[in-house]
Simulated assay, not measured.
Amino acid sequence: MFAELFILMYAAHLAADYPLQTDHQAGCKASHGAAGWRANLAHVGTHFVAVAVALLVGHLVLDLAIPVLPAVLALVWIAGTHAVIDRRWPVAAWMRFARQAGWARHGGAAHVDQTAHVLVLVVAALVLAAI
């Protein structure tokens, strides 16, 4: 069940991060103040809904046994961590710690960002599959 859950949630993540994310969200989600948080939370809401739909599809189409409370907790975990990662400072901090300043200047932050999101999805899929 892990593989099915991960693939469904990863597909939902990709949809929410690329075709469903507005230019405004992408450009402002890491901005300081209320406007930045509004853009960030609108983007995170898209993730929440996309992953919820993916889990529902997994339940209805693939007959995956996904209990409601663990599913909701997984959605909160995914949305909450996504909000923090997309503020961009955690990625920048990691890249400074890992001595990746050159890679950061040449587009590496986007790869580190996506890796962090994928690791969050792996944890969520593992926990859901273990229940």
Rank of each mutant, 00 (worst) to 15 (best):
L5F: 14
L5C: 10
L8Y: 00
L8V: 07
A11W: 00
A11N: 03
A12L: 00
A12E: 03
A12Y: 01
A15G: 12
A16T: 03
D17R: 08
D17G: 06
Y18Q: 00
Y18E: 14
P19W: 02
D23C: 05
H24W: 15
Q25R: 11
Q25W: 11
A30C: 10
A30D: 15
S31D: 14
W37G: 05
A39F: 10
A39Y: 04
N40S: 14
L41A: 05
L41R: 00
H43L: 09
V44Q: 08
H47Q: 15
F48I: 09
A50Q: 01
V51T: 11
A52Y: 02
V53E: 08
V53R: 08
V53L: 13
A54E: 03
L56I: 03
G58T: 11
L60Y: 13
L60G: 15
L62S: 13
L62H: 12
L64P: 01
L64H: 05
A65L: 15
A65Q: 13
P67G: 08
P67F: 07
V68E: 00
V68I: 13
V68P: 09
L69D: 02
L69Q: 06
L69M: 07
P70G: 01
A71I: 02
A74G: 04
V76N: 04
W77G: 06
I78A: 01
I78R: 00
T81C: 12
H82P: 07
A83F: 01
A83K: 09
A83D: 07
V84R: 07
V84N: 04
I85S: 10
I85D: 05
R87V: 08
R88G: 02
V91G: 07
A92W: 08
A93L: 14
A93E: 12
M95V: 06
M95D: 06
A98Q: 06
R99I: 07
A101C: 04
G102C: 01
H106L: 10
H106A: 13
H106K: 15
H106C: 11
G107K: 04
G108I: 01
A110L: 10
H111F: 12
V112F: 03
D113P: 04
Q114W: 14
T115G: 02
A116H: 05
H117V: 13
V118D: 00
V122C: 09
V122H: 03
A124H: 04
A124T: 11
V127W: 06
A129H: 02
A130S: 15
I131A: 13
I131E: 13
